[in-house]
Design a protein around this nucleic acid. Structure first.
Length: 794
DNA sequence: GTCATAGTTTCTCCTCCCTG
DNA sequence: CAGGGAGGAGAAACTATGAC
């Protein structure tokens, strides 16, 4: 420790500036210090020959306490040291005071004693560290050696590993040695990127090249990985610029694509209402393995729509093992937002309109965000459980209530919903978020008219992306009905495409993808009827009948650019969740075909079904029907006899009667008001499960073990397939799909009693808001509190 | 507009197990 | 027993946002 000016070797260190004697020589002081304490406490600094007089002002107490703090002393030594320091300071003060000011040169000064505050700070952790120092040394050394590059999100970690591995492979196959300290050279990296870009494949088969941005980010990822791996690696600005220039050249040559390739779609909440209706209607009409699963899937999509959140915020994203959204989180926050998965206190408050009165709920957004859903204690006894549980891998009729769903479950639900509802575009979970952003911007709530800041706040980000989507649209068509592939079709495809005979599933996937594409193209180019849009001013100049579906969508669904005028009958405001400002009407948000099918013109459900099914004939698997008919032609009697045997068994356990009654009840389930709707969907337990029928003797037992039941769910009953002529009034039903064709020969459409037109009126779909509100009530009030009886694990 | 960071989503292949 | 649905994992691509 030194204080005062540096004293050069050879200078007179022992002469007192006052007396010139040795009485106050530093040698003497040194001896005293050495005598009373350990040598390490000895002040090494000599007494300055000249010093500024203002230094006399420094605090004796501060100096002593500073020294005391630096050396760990017991109390007795502290007292002795304190005395010594006191004398030392007195001596120094005199020396400084006597010094000649004009001899002072500040550049010669060196100040190493700093004012120290909080000298006891960190005592607890220091003492703890002291007690475990040997163990810590061992552990930290081990960790230091074994530390992997695991910083950031899972995919970020993956990307670094990916590019490092590619570079290593490149070096190995070209026999290039890499320095273990400095890492690869800039030239090597340049050549590597120039090479690898030729061997990367774009994800989309139609895409001519990979994105420019992908390669730009690859450079970043690789540099990060190399900086972690090699202690002295550094990519010079020169080499970075050369790589950048090389990538730009590739982009100019068309070997890399600039900008975006895929087009974002926008699924608004109004559209979601229609799709949710189709989802439930399809399950009612065609049967489903489990209503718990069906409703859970719908809830997962409802949450994304209602909260305008990302898929990763209600399910578990790929690569994550962190906690998911549970009922205890479901108050009014987004718990696991992007970029904040690992953080504790960055939950985002969601703005929503809590509407408790069902009759006033006019929008998917506000109703799904109803206070009932997020009311604390909705699922008070199961608050640790995920809001969106995983579908059991072992038995897909059950939910694993303690296991959160992964992203893929939500994605597959979204794709299924799109197919069921006839959405022609390729949609994904993020489209819900974009659509909700658009709707939030036009909502009639407290945030009306603030489509920028408030919308951004609702979404948790800046308003740029919100504003961008206002003119985008979703093309719609008739519902897509999946048709089973025949083995012949698959075999033929394998033969034509020279696919390995064992890769039949891949062939099947490709065939189905081709079918969907063909279907979409067909629907996009078909004609639509003009009657429903006669009030569209654009129709006066261009008949809608001559326009394609995509043209209709382009003019009618485009929100910001719409020039449609209001009907002026007051119905707009009654139905619309949307802001009706200027020349915009709520109908400008909705596809005309949906208005045709489910609009406010008291369109019957039968009409709607007719519209939906009229375009769906192309998807009927006629080959399967024909094959089945030919196969059955010689054994009809035997088959009917077998069917009757099964029926007798089911009648014995009283299932068929109950099921028949349920079938009658469910015809108007979607039309029931309020709580009746909720209760109906909490009770319905009509399942379609062929395994139950495998052994008719054990049908009852199988129903109990293979179908969820208990709590509010009715005892499980088997789904009955309706006769193909059911729309004409035929009431024949059958339990297995592959025997449906048996009914045709015995069903004479001419003899079927035509339904009374008055009864059809009773099946009027009231308004779109009713359905959605009921759905949400059903989900929130009953299904997840008591409706799900048990998990697979329980 | 570009860069940097930290993600999310999409696609494919494979496996398991249910369905017809 | 072939078809089909869903999950897991790997690979590739896309997205959001703050800072400058």
């Amino acid at each position: 420790m030194r204080i005062g000016p540096r004293v050069q070797d050879g200078e007179n260190q022992g002469t007192c500036p006052i007396t010139g004697s040795d009485a106050f020589s530093t040698e003497g002081k040194k001896a005293v210090w050495n005598r009373r304490g350990p040598s390490r406490f000895t002040p090494q600094s000599p007494v300055p020959r000249s010093a500024p007089s203002r230094l006399c002002e420094f605090s004796t107490e501060l100096y002593t306490s500073s020294l005391l703090n630096q050396f760990c002393l017991d109390s007795s030594r502290r007292q002795l040291l304190y005395l010594d320091l006191y004398f030392d300071l007195a001596f120094r003060s005199v020396c400084f005071a006597m010094a000649e000011p004009e001899q002072f040169n500040s550049s010669d000064q060196e100040y190493e004693v700093q004012r120290r505050v909080h000298f006891k700070a960190g005592n607890a952790s220091i003492e703890s560290m002291m007690s475990a120092r040997y163990e810590d040394r061992k552990t930290s050394k081990k960790i230091l050696r074994e530390q992997a590059d695991t910083g950031g999100a899972p995919v970020s970690v993956y990307l670094r590993a990916l590019w490092l591995r590619r570079l290593e492979a490149y070096a190995e196959m070209n026999d290039i040695s890499v320095d273990e300290e400095d890492g690869p050279s800039g030239d090597m990296l340049y050549r590597f990127f120039r090479t690898i870009v030729n061997h990367m494949k774009p994800s989309d088969h139609d895409k001519p090249a990979i994105q420019f941005r992908t390669m730009k980010e690859a450079v970043v990822q690789l540099v990060q990985g190399l900086e972690f791996k090699y202690p002295h690696f550094k990519l010079s600005r020169h080499h970075a610029a050369r790589i950048d220039a090389m990538l730009s050249d590739l982009a100019n040559e068309g070997k890399l694509l600039r900008g975006r390739w895929s087009k974002a779609e926008w699924l608004g909440t109004v559209l979601f209402e229609k799709m949710a209706r189709a989802w439930l209607q399809t399950a009612l009409d065609q049967g489903y393995l489990s209503w718990n699963v069906q409703i859970s899937r719908l809830l997962s999509m409802s949450l994304v729509v209602a909260l305008a959140c990302r898929a990763g915020e209600v399910t578990v994203s790929h690569g994550y093992t962190t906690e998911s959204l549970t009922w205890r989180h479901a108050t009014n926050v987004i718990r696991f937002e992007k970029g904040k998965n690992f953080q504790t206190n960055d939950d985002r408050t969601v703005f929503f309109c809590a509407q408790r009165d069902p009759s006033k709920t006019s929008s998917a957004q506000s109703s799904c965000c109803s206070s009932k859903l997020f009311e604390p204690g909705t699922s008070r006894t199961h608050r640790h459980r995920p809001v969106i549980p995983a579908i059991s891998k072992r038995d897909k009729a059950f939910l694993e209530l303690d296991k959160p769903a992964k992203y893929k479950q939500l994605r597959s639900s979204t794709i299924q919903l799109g197919l069921v509802a006839g959405v022609l575009a390729k949609i994904n979970t993020h489209d819900w978020r974009r659509g909700s952003a658009r709707d939030v911007a036009h909502w009639i709530t407290k945030i009306t008219g603030v489509a920028n800041d408030a919308t951004a706040a609702a979404l948790g980000h800046t308003p740029i992306s919100t504003a961008k989507g206002l003119t985008d649209k979703i093309p719609l068509g008739a519902p897509y009905k999946k048709a089973r592939l025949s083995s012949d079709e698959t075999a033929k495809f394998c033969l034509e495409k020279a696919t390995h005979k064992n890769h039949r599933q891949r062939a099947g996937e490709r065939i189905r993808a081709m079918r969907r594409s063909e279907r979409i193209e067909e629907q996009k180019n078909r004609k639509v009827t003009p009657e429903t849009l006669d009030d569209d001013p654009q129709n006066s100049t261009k008949p809608l009948a001559q326009r394609t579906q995509s043209q209709v969508n382009a003019t009618s669904v485009g929100v910001a650019s719409s020039t449609q005028t209001s009907r002026g009958d007051g119905s707009d405001r009654r139905l619309s969740p949307l802001k009706a400002s200027g020349n915009e009407t709520w109908k400008s948000f909705i596809d005309p075909q949906l208005l045709l099918a489910f609009g406010d013109n008291s369109t019957s459900l039968q009409d709607a079904e007719g519209i939906m099914s009229s375009e769906g004939d192309t998807c009927v698997d006629e080959g399967s029907v024909n094959r089945f008919m030919s196969a059955l032609s010689g054994s009809l009697d035997a088959a009917v006899g077998e069917e009757e045997a099964v029926d007798r068994e089911l009648i014995r356990v009283g299932l068929l009667t109950e099921n028949a009654q349920s079938a009658l009840d469910r015809s108007d389930m979607l039309l029931r008001p309020g709580d009746e709707f909720v209760i109906a969907f909490c009770r319905i337990n009509i399942v379609r499960n062929s395994l139950i029928l495998e052994n008719s003797k054990n049908a009852f037992h199988r129903l109990e073990t293979r179908a969820p039941s208990g709590n509010t769910r009715d005892p499980p009953t088997l789904f009955q397939y309706k006769c193909i002529n059911h729309t004409n009034g035929c009431t024949f039903t059958i339990k297995t799909k592959n025997k449906l064709a048996l009914l045709l020969p015995i069903c004479d459409p001419e003899k079927i009693e035509k339904p009374n037109p008055a009864s059809a009126i009773t099946r009027v779909v009231r308004t779109t808001r009713d359905l959605y509100h009921k759905l949400v009530l059903m989900i929130t009030l009953r299904a997840f509190t008591t409706g799900f009886s048990r998990s697979v694990t329980s």
